[in-house]
Design a protein around this nucleic acid. Structure first.
Length: 262
DNA sequence: ATGGTCGCATCGCGA
């Protein structure tokens, strides 16, 4: 059962219901994982998605902040949701496809502006979230699994517009990159986007604050698709849909796609 | 070095 999957930090699923519908109609991934839905689950506009063939959803929500949803043309069996770092936030949910593949949809805390847990509690929460992800995937080794989401870290030098200028900027500091690597190693997760596109600059996010995001092109690759080694070789066709950043009233993130021939 | 823009629980906070 080959399938295509996308991950997208939508920054309010209700405000951008039309953009989600456009992506569904234009690209039609079998599974769409959203982060920052900023909505209680019961207020997600599922009827719009259902009309486009997306008849299944597994989600966690809160009013105003966070929120993750797996929306699918294929049946989903809810696997559960974790509260890494015990923040009480809706930042993870997992579901199983009919072929047995488990999809983890994650929204790692952004971590505030100061990369020091003594001065900035949110930075500590980000590191703790990643540590608990590591411990969880070490204790329960994932198999036939995919992990996607806004991980809020751009790990590689070619995942940011300027490695040197971002070394002390939250999302690209060495300590965050190390914490992400440990979470990745614990589950033996393979970075599918970089398996498909091994070199060159790749961004999935551009700040709203740039006067001209396209011309300045000061992007970062914060959104990721990982898979366990037993299915990683089935992954292919990764794409990052940069044009979505230019849509009217866009999210600051764009969708990241991958396909799996399983 | 600073400030810049979004979304919403909207005049403050998180991103």
């Amino acid at each position: 059962m080959p399938f295509t999957l996308a991950t997208w930090n939508i920054n309010s699923v209700r405000l951008r219901e039309g953009l989600v519908a456009r992506l569904m109609a234009d690209e039609g991934p079998d599974v769409l994982c959203l982060q920052e839905c900023k909505s209680p689950v019961e207020k997600i506009p599922v009827e719009t998605f259902r009309a486009l063939g997306y008849t299944h959803m597994v989600a966690r929500g809160q009013k105003g902040y966070n929120g993750v949803a797996i929306i699918s043309k294929l049946p989903l069996e809810e696997v559960g949701a974790r509260d890494f770092a015990s923040l009480g936030h809706a930042r993870h949910v997992a579901a199983r496809l009919p072929n047995g593949v488990v999809i983890h949809n994650c929204y790692v805390p952004a971590g505030g502006d100061i990369p020091d847990r003594e001065q900035n509690e949110k930075f500590g929460q980000k590191l703790d979230f990643l540590t608990e992800m590591r411990d969880h995937f070490f204790a329960e080794k994932p198999a036939r699994s995919i992990l996607v989401g806004d991980l809020n870290i751009a790990p590689r030098e070619d995942d940011v517009w300027s490695h040197k200028q971002l070394l002390k900027i939250v999302s690209h500091t060495p300590i965050e990159v190390e914490h992400l690597a440990q979470a990745q190693d614990a589950g033996k997760w393979v970075d599918i986007t970089r398996q498909d596109i091994p070199s060159g600059l790749l961004y999935s996010w551009w700040s709203y604050r740039a006067a001209d995001w396209d011309a300045a092109d000061k992007g970062r690759r914060l959104d990721h698709v990982w898979a366990t080694p037993d299915i990683a070789n089935a992954g292919h066709g990764s794409r990052i849909l940069r044009p979505c950043r230019g849509w009217e009233q866009p999210s600051d993130h764009v969708p990241v796609f991958a396909s799996f021939d399983i």
